[in-house]
Amino acid sequence: ELTPEQQNLLHYIMDSYNKQRIPPEVSKKLLQEEFSAEENFLILTEMATSHVQVLVEFTKRLPGFQTLDHEDQIALLKGSAVEAMFLRSAEIFNRKLPIGHADLLEERIRNSGISDEYITPMFHFYKSMGELKMTQEEYALLTAIVILSPDRQYIQDRESVEKLQEPLLEVLEKYCKLYHTDNPQHFACLLGRLTELRTFNHHHADMLMSWRVN
């Protein structure tokens, strides 16, 4: 079972996670009529920017984050933003959007000038995340774990970051054992996704470049 401290930590993370909202004036643009590649590009860029702002707000509330060196805070966020966004998108595609919105978003992404070599693995990733039937708690904890990864580039004080990440890994491991009794490998599967996210992170710069060129 989760200890009372671990339960508090989980509730606290969930409370912060649930405060994440892209402003309605940004998300409603998704439903506007224009569907040119340029319009799709602009909408996705604005959503991504908004997404980063929301992610920073979540990160600021992670226990201990604000005690880290300021430049380490930036290095953690820079290193993880893309991965956290892919995770959030996976959650959104699998359970968050009202009916019809997911199709619209997918259509805009597919018709925004990004080449299929990036699109195909991306939607494959979202689909495979859906198959894991992750709860919101798991998405929240995994996002926090991704952000507090001590092995990002330019981190000076890795030990302090590790100390913040460890309790979250312990809660996630216990949570998986408690709520996925049918699959003893569930926790390992979630950690496996972190490797996959790193690959997306590496490809992301190339993807942006091809998007701009197109």
Partner: peptide, 21 residues
Amino acid sequence: PASNLGLEDIIRKALMGNFDD
């Protein structure tokens, strides 16, 4: 507009809490 900023700028501004400035 925010969409013209790079990732690091967005992060720095959001961390300082003055994104609207």
